[in-house]
Amino acid sequence: MLQIGVLAIQGAFYKHAETLKSLQTQPVIVKYAADLAHLDGLIIPGGESTVITRQLGYRLAWEDLYAFAQHKAVFGTCAGLIMLGKGCTDPRVRQLGLLDATIERNAYGSQIESFTEDITLSFDEHPFHAVFIRAPKILKVGKEAEIVATFRGEAVMVRQKYLLGAAFHPELTHDIRIHDYFIRHCVTQSGK
């Protein structure tokens, strides 16, 4: 059975773990460097990117996470997308810079501007009901990355080889298609 880690420093890690279980994979809570050892992939969940930045380096180093993401599959949602991407000018947030996309934090405003909307997937004809919470925006997609989901023509999910980043929260809906896509196109491919 595939073992997929969920970074559990702070945020919506529990919901991701539930979704992974329903896909017959084994979720592993990741808080220490040693937790990364036997994983086939990793999810960096939504939460506050400032908090995750602040706490990385304590029991789990940046370098460990960076080394993992060099050759294994990583899926970042919301705050996790910010951490995978580039171009965030806020000094309170540190990025891995591995995903070739420029991300703006909290780009839609405060919580009352949060919304749900059907988005278009590149790999499935049926729309996906996406939950955007104080969501980041993908401002620019570099040539290394491809757009795999759009909302009103703008990129909301991008993939670069084994890395996947989404501005919304697929873990908050019961639709498992995006986690399934991550497992089939990123996790199992990275192992080959």
Partner: peptide, 20 residues
Amino acid sequence: MEKSSYEVKVGLAEMLKGGV
């Protein structure tokens, strides 16, 4: 675009989990 559904409200609470 549906703003402020109950789903979105509980969603923000989910994001605060494991935090102070």
